[in-house]
Simulated assay, not measured.
Amino acid sequence: MMEGVSEINEDLLIDFRDVAFARGGRNLVGPVNWQVELDERWVIIGPNGAGKTTLIRMAAAEEFPSSGEAYLMGEKLGKTDMRDLRSMIGVSSAALAGRIPDEETVADLVISAGYAILGRWREEYTELDLDQAFEVLERVGAYHLADRTWGTLSEGERKRVLVARALMTNPELLLLDEPSAGMDLGGREDLVGYLGDLAMDADAPAIVMITHHVEEIPDGFTHALLLDEGEVVAQGLINTVLTSENLTKAFHQPIQVDRIGDRYFARRVRSGGAHRR
């Protein structure tokens, strides 16, 4: 290997090496060392302002790091066509939801992911497009919504449709930014159940999910990254990261974490939490 040239591990879908992101003179994330392999399912958890969304935007090839080296699918950010990388990554996020026209039909919204656009204009979709869209909608329990418009959907229905859109292109990497946010208990549990099934599917893409709440972590997730104020508190196998000690440190108050079956639950154990520095 030539001196000064980093060795690329092609088995890694995400390979962040001392990656940091700064804006307005303030460091928002990092430095972070983080690697994600094909068969791994990661949850990123931490309080508001921890840097979770910034980190996942870099993983979605939507932001460049301010320093360090970031590789996606073996390609270095800044040295490759970002559009090619994005075609291999499925994303579901509130930012995307806010850009969808109310009159867009669910079927068109899902199909248009394959054309890397948002909002159908003059595109002519094929029977293959329609069949694939109906298949992914059925997988997430949203087949019955195909003819509905975005503006008529409930929050829970929107979350399912966004996951379907993210899966439409058969991505290698699936990024979910708070997929259960705003859902009622029944809707959340339905979605958590589906994501658990997806996580257990050997043919599913690698998954990275952001959440604030350990209760929203589906069965089948293998790893966790715990952030606070842009810094890594802990990362690794999920059962070694989601501990009372680690969450107490990240959330600056005494947190008790319990595992019941295959799900995690957290609660504050006494009054008088610590103040942030």
Results as ranks from 00 to 15, higher is better:
G49E: 05
G49K: 01
A50V: 09
A50H: 07
A50T: 05
A50L: 01
G51Q: 06
K52W: 00
K52V: 11
K52Q: 05
K52A: 06
T53C: 12
T53H: 03
T53A: 06
T53G: 03
T54S: 12
T54I: 10
T54H: 05
T54Q: 08
L55H: 01
I56W: 02
I56H: 06
I56Y: 03
I56C: 07
R57F: 03
M58V: 11
M58Q: 05
M58C: 09
A59E: 04
A59Y: 01
A59F: 04
A60N: 10
A60D: 08
A60T: 07
A60E: 00
A61S: 14
E62I: 10
E62C: 11
E62R: 11
E62G: 13
E62K: 13
E63L: 15
E63P: 03
E63H: 12
E63R: 11
E63F: 12
F64Q: 15
F64N: 13
F64T: 10
F64S: 12
S66M: 05
S66G: 13
S66R: 11
G68D: 02
G68A: 04
G68C: 10
G68R: 04
E69R: 11
E69Y: 02
E69G: 02
A70Y: 00
A70R: 06
A70T: 04
A70I: 02
A70F: 04
Y71V: 00
Y71D: 02
L72M: 07
L72Y: 02
L72D: 01
L72W: 01
L72C: 13
L72P: 03
M73S: 09
G74M: 04
G74P: 05
K76W: 07
K76T: 06
K76L: 11
K76A: 13
L77A: 11
L77T: 01
L77Y: 05
G78D: 14
G78C: 08
K79H: 14
K79N: 15
K79W: 06
K79M: 10
T80C: 15
T80F: 11
T80W: 12
D81R: 14
D81L: 10
D81P: 07
D81Q: 13
M82V: 12
M82L: 15
M82Q: 07
R83K: 14
R83D: 15
R83G: 08
R83T: 14
D84G: 14
D84I: 14
D84A: 14
D84N: 15
D84S: 14
D84K: 15
R86D: 02
S87F: 06
S87G: 13
S87V: 04
S87R: 15
S87N: 13
S87T: 06
I89F: 12
I89E: 00
I89P: 02
I89L: 06
G90E: 07
G90P: 08
V91G: 11
V91H: 00
V91S: 03
V91C: 09
V91N: 03
V91W: 00
S92T: 09
